[in-house]
Write a protein that binds this DNA or RNA. Structure first.
Length: 497
RNA sequence: GGCGCUAUGGUGCAACGGUUAGCACGCGGCCCUUUCAAGGCCGAAAUACGGGUUCGAUUCCCGUUAGCGCUACCA
């Protein structure tokens, strides 16, 4: 491989589940690296496991990547459409002696400790009882020494062989890892692994190497769970006459209990974060900092800064725990610090989702929409906040939160005072913050009550919530007509309180 | 069981032989205040343990422990 050329990287998920945060982070690192270096990113779907493969999941993975903002220049390629290539490469290895036909029963080869392929998705609690003697795995397959006559005999028995790699029995295999440094492993630890299953389908080891060679991948950036198997792949590269790429294994993301992220940790798919109302850029920022650091203390890094500063040298070697509260913090930061114009499209989508978009002032008056969002956003955490507690900014159809009524509508003088306030506001010649402020305080003084009593009660009357932006700014945004009519409309409810 | 990787507050990171071990999330307090946030200030909280090497170890080496990964005709 020519290291002076622009790098070529790939993200290669297998459609056995949705796009989870670990995969998303791997995809993001590949993308950041490619962008930073001006290289090329491609997408490849590793769907060679017919048993667990679920083609219908591919669209969701692509959608997840798009939401994340990870783009690819090439692909998606599907390994299921490249099977002939893997088979012919396997035959080449067979012919060169680098591989051999294996007639063992699939189940008999695995060592005594190899749990018979339990579905690793939902592990059961059954711990403890020793599953037989902990014998060392037999790493050299007896079939490697079969003679032509032996093979012919097996063939006559009707056994279809698998093809295994003939792993060297001595020496070491080394490679460079941009994260973990130079690696060198003893070859006697490497078993005669399967390249082509007896059903003619390639294993991961074969297809990943054949494809990475064919697609001229220069840097393999992937989860550290692949670190231990990398020497096998390096051996394969050499047997295939290719130079291995640079590897970069990134640490894993774990759940709060320090185990691998899985369904029981709650939301782990990126689409669930999209659904919850996180901003993609906030999610990216958070994800990028899980296992990578620009070197200093800066944390709020917009995507272009991430791209500018990304480097494999900054990737850490320790597994990271997914910290949901920090993710939310990032989201509030983005909701508040971004130019309003950047968040408007997201709020618009949220309003559409809640059926509050059509006919709203947000559509008719974009300038007003921007001011309203700007007023609301300091106390939002997720996008749905705009249509939950802030619903009254976009529709007259809202109700009064029970806790807010109980807390701020208790005083029995309120119905009378609010009626007077509505009249006073209606009579205002000018509608602005100070005019509203003065009108309300004047009334409070006249009635001998604290302004706060009226302020809080009025807030509930016009937005239905105790938690809302400052009252007079809210009044300005809502406008005189809406404020006056909402106060009057609330009167019966206030009396009933 | 074997092989490997990792180890800084509860969490994410910084410090890549010399710092009063820094930042952020979260947590507690105070300020601001019209509710709730945001914001500001303050605080509690860490180099897993034991040996080396060195004038000097968070940093380098070894061991222990712990966690994780791999050890499939999964990827």
């Amino acid at each position: 491989m020519d290291h002076t050329q622009k790098p070529r990287v790939r993200f290669a998920p297998s459609p056995t589940g949705y796009l989870h945060v670990g995969g998303a982070r791997t995809a993001l690192f590949n993308w950041l690296f490619a962008r930073h270096k001006g290289g090329t990113m491609l997408l490849r779907i590793e769907d060679t496991d017919v048993e667990r493969n679920r083609p219908e999941l591919v669209d969701g993975i692509l959608a997840g990547l798009k939401w994340l903002g990870v783009e690819w220049e090439e692909g998606p390629y599907f390994q299921s459409q490249r099977l002939e290539m893997y088979r012919s490469e396997a035959r080449r290895l067979l012919a060169s002696g680098a591989a051999f036909a294996c007639y063992c029963k699939a189940s008999s080869y695995a060592g005594a400790d190899a749990a018979p392929a339990a579905e690793s998705g939902e592990e059961q609690e059954g711990e403890g009882d020793a599953e037989g003697p902990k014998t060392r795995k037999n790493i050299a397959c007896p079939c490697r020494d079969l003679t032509d006559a032996d093979r012919a005999a097996r063939e006559r028995e009707g056994i279809t062989p698998a093809i295994r790699f003939r792993a060297p029995r001595s020496g070491t295999t080394g490679f460079q890892d941009a994260v973990f440094g130079p690696r060198d492993v003893q070859n006697e630890e490497i078993e005669d692994f399967v390249l082509l299953r007896s059903n003619g389908l390639p294993t991961y080891q074969l297809s990943v190497v054949v494809d990475d060679i064919d697609m001229r991948i220069s840097h393999v950036i992937r989860g550290a769970d692949h670190l231990s198997n990398t020497p096998k792949q390096v051996l394969l590269y050499r047997a295939l006459g290719a130079e291995p790429p640079i590897f970069a294994h990134v640490p894993l993301i774990l759940g709060a209990d320090r185990t691998r992220l899985s369904k029981r940790h709650g939301a782990t798919s990126v689409s669930s974060y999209a659904d919850e109302g996180f901003l993609p850029e906030a999610f990216r920022n958070f994800l990028a900092l899980l296992g990578w650091s620009p070197g200093g203390d800066s944390e709020f890094l917009r995507t272009h800064e991430l791209v500018e500063r990304f480097s494999l040298a900054g990737v850490s070697r320790t597994n990271a725990i997914f910290d949901r509260p920090k993710l939310e913090w990032f989201n509030t930061q983005y909701l508040q610090k971004l130019p309003v114009s950047d968040v408007l499209p997201y709020v618009a989508d949220e309003l559409k989702r809640a059926n509050l978009w059509n006919g709203s002032q947000a559509v008719a008056d974009p300038e007003w929409f921007a001011r309203a969002v700007d007023l609301i956003r300091p106390r939002t955490r997720l996008l749905p906040d705009f249509t939950a507690w802030a619903r009254a900014f976009f529709t007259d159809d809202f109700d009064y939160e029970a806790e807010a009524r109980a807390k701020f509508w208790k005083d029995e003088r309120l119905p009378d005072m609010l009626a007077k306030l509505a009249d006073a506001l209606a009579a205002l010649p000018e509608w602005n913050h100070d005019a509203c402020d003065a009108a309300l305080r004047q009334l409070a003084t006249a009635e001998g009550v604290k302004a706060g009593l009226l302020i809080n009660a009025t807030r509930v009357a016009i937005v239905g919530r105790a938690v809302a932006p400052p009252l007079f700014e809210t009044m300005v945004i809502l406008g005189k007509d809406r404020v006056v009519s909402r106060i009057r409309r609330a009167l019966p409810s206030v009396s009933a309180q």
